[in-house]
């Protein structure tokens, strides 16, 4: 289990991470989302040891992570992270060797990875000669070259075309199925929702929501789309008859209403039926995007002043 335990980090007066904690199990894909500058990159760099936290620890399998254990970690930084003038294959072998992999094994793995990412023909090209999407694939290969048990990827999907996204997602899923713990950050929330077993939403260096998408939904208010075959005023009537009902959108014939936690949805249905024939009564599942919007806007005004994390991540 990879545990980030109460990590804090400041850059001068700017708080980048404030008591951030989360865990990722082996065989789990964890999506790390948050607005720009929320502290995602800082957290990842701390996990990889390229940055020290002011306080807090990172543990893997119950032990505080040290340099030797980090050789089981693979890292894909947001920016290129490759030698532009080096040949793709040589680059992968070199990195593997730095992690202590024997040369023959490294060559074998590099070849396999490049084939898997459909880059076999570009093996002897210089990195700078590849398209950005292909460079990103090489970067993924670089993060996987020493067969890490923990994979930390900063924005692995940004800038990829749909084929590239599928290839990258496939490779990550295969790693997770093989028992690796994978954390990645992304702004493509539909993708995160589709791929990840668990999601953490971070705002201004703090974790504001953490769990499976289902769990996050459970915490959010329940919404229903209701259509009653009655005169135009039925929505107002419903709200008046049943306390705890809020109308989110009453303009269309089928209205969107939100039920307070203590309101039984069956009672709401009964109340609606009393108004006329009910044609539709559908629970609306919030998308991750909606959950995310709620999470990052909730009370954002409180601490915006003290957590100017945007600058921190952008400038470091």
């Amino acid at each position: 289990m990879l545990e980030l335990d109460r990590l804090s980090r400041r850059y001068g007066d700017v708080v980048a991470l404030d008591d951030l904690s989360f865990t990722v199990r082996p065989g789990q894909m964890y999506g790390f989302v948050g607005t720009n500058g929320a502290g995602k990159t800082t957290a990842m760099r701390i996990v990889l040891g390229v940055l020290s936290p002011d306080s807090g620890t990172v543990r893997w399998q119950g032990r505080t992570v040290d340099r030797d254990m980090r050789r089981e970690f693979g890292y894909m930084p947001e920016e290129r992270g490759l030698y532009p003038k080096m040949r793709v294959f040589d680059q992968l072998v070199y990195l593997a060797q730095l992690y202590g992999v024997a040369r023959t094994t490294a060559r074998q793995t590099a070849g396999d990875l490049l084939d898997m990412l459909a880059l076999g023909e570009r093996a002897s090209d210089r990195v700078e000669a590849l398209s950005l999407g292909n460079q990103q694939r090489v970067q993924l290969a670089a993060a996987l070259i020493h067969d890490p048990a923990v994979l930390v990827l900063d924005e692995p999907f940004s800038g990829l075309d749909p084929m590239g996204v599928d290839a990258m997602a496939g490779v990550l899923r295969a790693r997770v199925d093989a028992g690796a713990a994978v954390v990645f950050s992304s702004h493509q929330l539909e993708l995160v929702e589709r791929l990840c077993d668990a999601v953490g939403i971070v705002r201004a260096g703090r974790m504001v929501a953490d769990g499976t998408v289902e769990q996050l939904r459970g915490e959010a208010a329940r919404r229903y789309r209701i259509h009653v075959d009655a005169g135009p005023g039925w929505v107002g009537e419903l709200r008046d008859r049943l306390p705890g009902v809020t109308v989110v959108d009453g303009s269309a014939p089928d209205a969107l209403v939100e039920l307070a936690p203590d309101v039984d949805d069956q009672k709401a249905l009964d109340t609606a039926r009393a108004l006329g024939p009910v044609r539709q009564f559908t629970p609306v599942r919030s998308t991750l995007t909606e959950l995310f919007r709620e999470a990052v806007t909730d009370g954002a005004g409180d601490d915006a002043g003290t957590h100017a994390g945007d600058h921190a991540e952008e400038s470091r």
Partner: peptide, 17 residues
């Protein structure tokens, strides 16, 4: 500077001192 500007250094230093 090449290593720094391309962030290779982050990958490198995750592996070696």
């Amino acid at each position: 500077v090449e290593e720094k500007s391309s962030r290779v250094v982050e990958v490198m230093l995750a592996a070696i001192p």
